[in-house]
Computed example of a mutant assay.
Amino acid sequence: MSKNIHGRTLDLLGEAIVSRRYAVGMPMPAEPLLCEAFGVSRTVVREAVKSLVAKGLIVTGPKVGTRVLPEDRWNWFDPDVITWQSRVGLTPEFLRDLVDLRRVVEPAAVRLAAERATGADIAEIEAAYAGMKAAIEQGGDYVSNDLRFHHGLLVAARNRMLAQMSKALDALLRTSFELSTAKKDGPAKSLPLHRAVLDAVIAHNPARAERAILKLIESAREDIDEVLQSRRRMPRVNRAPPRLKAAA
């Protein structure tokens, strides 16, 4: 129970900071006020504050108190930070940085996957692709299978550092996938692009695999640009992945 209370308090404080409820450089409410606001003990608040310090969102000290740090100090590879930003609403800067990161990391990772993927790796990516296809045709969770597909590519690169980045990358990629999934026929149009990546990895053709993933990333960028150019409010990512309806 204490872990659940800590996690809930951490989420509430994290989302409050990311939503700019507490201004950068300004002192946050005193500990007793936070305890009263969240209905928790000082121990819980203190543990949550320690976690936020570790994630780069705040700084504490006897002379400065507890203050919010600028966004460029936040740990954007921390899945919690990504989740909080996604929940309170994506920003143009966040989406731009996401596309840039994908362009840097994924082509190199997919080249390695095409060189190094084992039979088991390919079977896992195939299973993820089958799940995406089934979600389109029969209805279901497309986003989770899409994440599984890209996670499988990172694992197939057989690089321990890339593998350890996968948790943060999963959280980042989910935001892109949900934007594409929200578009009419988005998943159906994206599926052949995923197939091209998979076929290139199966063929152990690194150059073809790189071209295919770049085409897939470009398609996602177009989806994001459409969101940025619209007058709609920046989207929020769902706590649970959206489910597709069965194809007519």
Rank of each mutant, 00 (worst) to 15 (best):
V45L: 14
V143K: 12
E222P: 00
G14Q: 08
M161D: 04
A246P: 01
Q229V: 00
R111E: 14
K189Y: 02
D141H: 07
A182G: 11
H194D: 01
E115M: 12
V18R: 06
S166W: 01
R174G: 08
A203L: 03
L69I: 07
L90I: 04
G119P: 04
L33E: 15
M165V: 02
S51H: 14
G14T: 07
D223A: 08
L10C: 06
G89W: 06
I17Q: 05
A171T: 07
P70T: 01
R46L: 08
F38R: 05
E31G: 01
D97L: 09
E36T: 12
T118K: 05
A203I: 01
A248E: 12
A182H: 08
T175H: 12
D121K: 06
V49W: 07
R67H: 03
D97K: 09
L12W: 03
G7F: 03
I217Y: 12
D223T: 14
P187S: 06
N159G: 03
V237H: 01
L193P: 02
E115K: 12
I136S: 07
V68W: 05
A212C: 01
N205E: 14
G131A: 10
A134R: 14
D121P: 03
G25S: 10
A108S: 15
D121H: 15
I136W: 05
A54G: 11
A117M: 12
R233F: 06
G131V: 07
R46D: 11
E115L: 13
I82Y: 02
V81Y: 02
F77H: 09
S41K: 04
R102N: 12
L101W: 13
L191H: 04
E71C: 01
R116C: 08
S2F: 02
L191T: 08
N159F: 04
Q164G: 00
F38K: 06
L95F: 01
V18P: 08
G89A: 06
S51L: 12
E126G: 09
R233G: 00
E178Y: 03
R87M: 11
L191P: 00
V81A: 04
L112R: 14
G39I: 09
A30E: 15
V68F: 10
E222W: 07
A48Y: 10
M161V: 14
A130V: 06
A156I: 08
V104K: 13
G152N: 10
V227P: 02
N4I: 09
E178M: 04
M132H: 11
F149W: 13
R111A: 14
V45R: 07
L13A: 06
M234L: 14
A156H: 06
L52H: 09
T83N: 13
L244I: 08
E31T: 15
A207Q: 09
E218L: 02
S180I: 01
